[in-house]
């Protein structure tokens, strides 16, 4: 609580100082400007709020009246959530929720484990063709994933990785694809961070007789934790929210499809079932929202760097 209190009093003093200079400093923030800001904020919030409110309204109400009627005639229910999550309904989102998690966790860990090693090699080892290979990896960031998909899918089929009888129940195609598409960006981000570590640190460790493996595991990896965390969050949100990769490589099979695939399918086939679509949408949104709100700092930092990915 004490930290919170100091935060608040800090904020107060700051806001006092700012207020004092506000009139001189601020130009656009007149009354009209405040109104414009509020209008934008409302426009950006109302659509989400509408669907969120609707997800708690009884089916009959949603289908006949707009969600804003809730303020005149309030009635709430959790039935919609019960219906989409239960295994007996055709929605059965709890199974797809599990699929999303099963896809996402390895798809975040695999590229990180592979990319940290590669980034270390590019940053601190000497070998022939180093610059050429690094530029190649950097350049591959810009290949849109669409360009790779047709041949990659037939390759998976030839290798026997696709389909329900394949090893891992068909998840390998999705895991590997996400890992491959993430690697160029992961290596680039981690390399940038790694080359900022002072060279003297590495040199003195080498003088003390440490080899690359010892330096990598004992010295570099602990220092890399913030960068790895930043990339992990980006990749987590990217994989969790992905539709294209899961759709193409999972082939729409309920065994391996994540929430996004099922929701998109329901939007097409059961587009009028708003009581269930609304609840379903928020089941899928809740995880990335929690991750985002808890770890916003890292996310914003990695945002620009990751913007040209796949």
């Amino acid at each position: 609580m004490t930290t919170l209190d100091t935060d608040i009093s800090d904020a107060r003093t700051i806001s006092k100082i700012e207020k004092a200079s506000e009139s001189s400093r601020k130009n656009l923030t007149s009354k009209g400007a405040s109104v414009a800001a509020v209008v934008i904020a409302v426009l950006w919030t109302v659509p989400t709020a509408g669907l969120l409110i609707s997800s708690f309204r009884p089916e009959a109400d949603i289908k006949t009246t707009g969600w804003w009627r809730i303020f005149v005639d309030p009635s709430f229910t959790l039935d919609n959530y019960r219906a989409v999550l239960s295994g007996s309904s055709q929605y059965n989102l709890s199974e797809y929720l599990i699929n999303s998690a099963i896809i996402t966790i390895p798809a975040v860990i695999i590229p990180i484990s592979v990319a940290t090693m590669a980034a270390y090699a590019f940053a601190w080892m000497q070998f022939p063709l180093k610059n050429f290979l690094f530029i190649l990896v950097f350049a591959l960031q810009i290949v849109p994933i669409q360009v790779t998909m047709i041949p990659l899918l037939s390759l998976y089929v030839d290798l026997g990785l696709a389909g329900g009888d394949a090893p891992g129940g068909g998840f390998y195609t999705i895991w590997l694809s996400h890992a491959m598409f993430a690697l160029p960006l992961a290596i680039y981000l981690l390399h940038n961070f790694m080359s900022e570590i002072p060279g003297e640190l590495i040199e003195s460790a080498r003088v003390d007789g440490a080899g690359h493996v010892q330096i990598f595991t004992r010295l570099i990896l602990p220092l890399m934790t913030p960068a790895i965390a930043a990339f992990a969050i980006l990749q987590f949100l990217w994989v969790w929210n992905d539709l294209l990769v899961a759709l193409v490589f999972g082939g729409g099979s309920p065994d391996v499809s994540p929430l996004t695939v099922q929701l998109a399918a329901l939007s097409g086939t059961r587009g009028q079932d708003w009581h269930l679509l609304a609840a379903g949408a928020f089941v899928s949104l809740i995880v990335p929202l929690i991750v985002f709100l808890a770890l916003q700092r890292f996310f914003v930092r990695g945002l620009l760097a990751g913007s040209v990915k796949g």
């Binding site: 669907l51 609304a278 949104l285």
Partner: peptide, 15 residues
């Protein structure tokens, strides 16, 4: 809206 999926955003607006 940046944190949620485009599928989720699409459902929000389709509504």
């Amino acid at each position: 809206p940046m944190a949620i999926s485009l599928v989720g955003a699409s459902l929000i607006w389709k509504f």
